[in-house]
Design a binder for these strands. Structure first.
Length: 572
RNA sequence: GCGCCUGUAGUGAAGGGGUUAUCACCUGAGGUUUCCAACCUCAUGUCCCGGGUUCAAAUCCCGGCGGGCGCACCA
């Protein structure tokens, strides 16, 4: 933050080069909505692709995809409808905004259940003062829900719905399918990338707080009694942690993951594992490791569902920004959906180490005799027989039944049997660890950390040092001149490269070669391949490295092979 | 949502009640050029939107929309 103008120059470049732009600009734009242009969209796709591959590589996590339109009951169960329908009021004098129920806290046993007019009445009759300025003049309170509402279906048959505020609910909805997919064995996880929607009161800070944004979330389901055993002793790199201070001042500690666990900075090994995997991902896509820290939420800051929550914060032009939240949501969501939906398939089976066996002697009823004999009371008699703890030694005997009366049971009515029972396990609700990534915020920081302003021969020179895996294109082919067949050769080479799966190449033949290198550097293309006069004679080209502008000449066939292997850098 | 500041080509800026709105870079066409934003010629393109004041508004006023900062909000 030493140079206040840097952010303006960076934003101007992002717009000029078609990376990130304000959306709907010819209609005046809409705050909180952005476009990724032709260059930015490619970067975004590759960041998401990297993210998907990062989590699915072990095979215990699969990708799913769910609707963004979500029926209301789902979000009632998840808590989003209730949590977000808070009544807000503003001070008439200083315009400070508060949750109305919190202002009325001392004047009503349960202000959360009140309607707007009831709570307004309490604020007036009790002369509640504004905590900010002391005034007692409140605007009528209004429900403030940060979700975008919509309707499914037309007219009276329509159902209330919302645009999803997070992708996570999709994974919970698919839990039964996931459980079958993974052969009913925990732990397993599911990821989803896509749009989320929050109708922010005041979106700010460019692409940091958006109303429609790219999320990438992972729900990892575990058995809380048998959490996965994860060895983090190899994790020796030094990381910055800020544990929950419990009232004391925040204190940053710089230690490794293995030390953090040994020292009790992090109690939950599974959460620690996802923190460390998150760190790996961020470094892979080009975030500067020295600008990453993990901060534990305070108790008061915790989301309504979370038990333990860490933020991964990244430092950039906007200061420290939360880019990933890693929460132990415990069984909150699955349990709540089970209650609201009456579904019985949101659980997992836990087999005991040893089946619990039991041998029991019972009196098995002979219903063809019992039935006609007791008629209306037969059901009660059967129930009492079943619950009999000690079997009588002799017949007939008296049996107390539920309505208080006693009946006589004779030998013909029952049969003495030995029952062997074996209980192999039990049903339980899995716990879930959720790393939730704000993709747009991460992309902003990738761009921020990669953007470098330098000088070249006295002139300003900007480049984007993007990691190879997320560059908008892998390489650019440049004919030195558009004549003598150089342009033709370059187009042919570009086509050959683009035919390699997963590789994107582009071509640029306008203006001087120096200018084209500069343009390529500014959008972060790692390699530039130049076709010159020598190329026409011996099938060689020069390859230029963005980061130091070094060039080597190589045979086209060798280059194509190296591109296939993703190892162009071995030329240098 | 409130307060202060703000909005001129793709980008960055100058100007400002009165002929055809200025500059640099960028972009396109042509020329030139044997590897790092060279040069020459030509071309495209701008006063955020709406209302008001005025003979005349890009300029002044009001409102909206967008941006920045502060306050508040941010599962």
């Amino acid at each position: 933050m030493t140079d206040e103008k840097r952010i303006e120059r960076l934003s101007a470049m992002l717009k000029r080069r078609g990376i990130v732009l304000p959306a709907f600009e010819i209609y005046g734009g809409v705050s909180g909505l952005i476009d990724y242009g032709p260059v930015g969209a490619s970067i975004r796709r590759r960041v998401i692709q990297n993210w998907v591959e990062h989590w699915t590589i072990n095979g215990d996590i699969v990708e799913i995809d769910s609707p963004t339109i979500t029926p209301e009951p789902v979000l009632v169960a998840s808590g989003h409808v209730g949590e977000f329908n808070d009544l807000m009021t503003q001070c008439g004098k200083c315009s400070a905004a508060f949750r109305a129920d919190q202002l009325a806290e001392n004047n009503h046993p349960n202000p959360e259940i009140l309607e707007a007019n009831e709570i307004d009445e309490i604020l007036i009759s009790n002369e509640i003062e504004c905590p900010n300025c002391g005034d007692k003049n409140w605007t009528p309170s209004k429900p403030m829900n940060l979700m975008f509402g919509t309707k499914i279906g037309a007219m009276r048959a329509s159902r209330q719905a919302y645009m999803r505020p997070e992708t996570a609910q999709g994974m919970f909805m698919l839990y039964p399918s996931l459980y079958r997919h993974f052969r009913q064995k925990l732990p397993f996880g599911a990821i989803q990338t896509g749009k989320g929607y929050r109708n922010e009161i005041s979106p700010r800070q460019g692409m940091i707080r958006l109303r429609e944004f790219n999320m990438a979330e992972l729900e990892y389901f575990i058995d809380p009694e048998n959490p996965p055993v994860i060895d983090l002793s190899m994790k020796k790199e030094i990381v910055s942690f800020i544990p929950d201070p419990h009232g004391e001042d925040y204190k940053e500690v710089k230690i490794s993951f293995s030390e953090a666990i040994d020292q009790g900075v992090m109690k939950d090994h599974t959460v620690a594992y996802f923190l460390s995997r998150t760190l790996d991902f961020l470094i892979n896509v080009g975030i500067n490791p020295s600008k990453i820290r993990f901060r534990q939420h305070e108790g008061t800051e915790m989301a309504h569902y979370a038990e333990d929550c860490w933020d991964c914060e990244i430092f950039g032009e906007h200061g420290w920004i939360e880019c990933v939240g890693i929460a132990n949501r415990t069984c909150h969501d699955l349990l709540s959906h089970e209650k609201h939906s009456n579904s019985n398939s949101l659980r997992a089976w836990r087999e005991f180490d040893e089946p619990k066996t039991d041998t029991k002697e019972v009196l098995a009823p002979n219903t063809s005799i019992l039935g006609p004999m007791f008629r209306g009371k037969a059901g009660l008699v059967l129930e009492s027989l079943k619950q009999l703890d000690e079997l009588p030694d002799n017949f007939p005997f008296e049996l107390q039944i539920k309505d208080g009366t006693k009946v006589e049971i004779t030998e013909e009515m029952v049969e003495r049997k030995t029952i062997h029972t074996s209980i192999a396990g039990e049903w339980f609700t899995p716990h879930v660890i959720e790393p939730a990534f704000g993709i747009d915020r991460i992309i902003w920081h990738i761009l921020d950390h990669a953007y470098e302003e330098t000088e070249k021969e006295g002139e300003k020179y900007n480049l984007l040092r993007l990691s190879e895996s997320i560059a908008p294109v892998d390489l650019i082919v440049l004919p030195l001149f558009e004549k003598e067949g150089m342009g033709e050769t370059a187009r042919k080479l570009n086509l050959q490269i683009n035919q390699i799966k997963g590789v994107i190449s582009s071509i640029d033949s306008s203006k001087s070669i120096g200018r084209r290198y500069a343009r390529a550097d500014e959008i972060g293309i790692p390699w530039a391949v130049t076709v010159d006069h020598i190329s026409l004679e011996d099938e060689t080209v020069t390859v230029r490295r963005r980061d130091d502008q070094k060039q080597v000449r190589t045979e086209i066939q060798l280059l194509l092979n190296l591109i296939r292997l993703g190892n162009v850098s071995s030329l240098f």
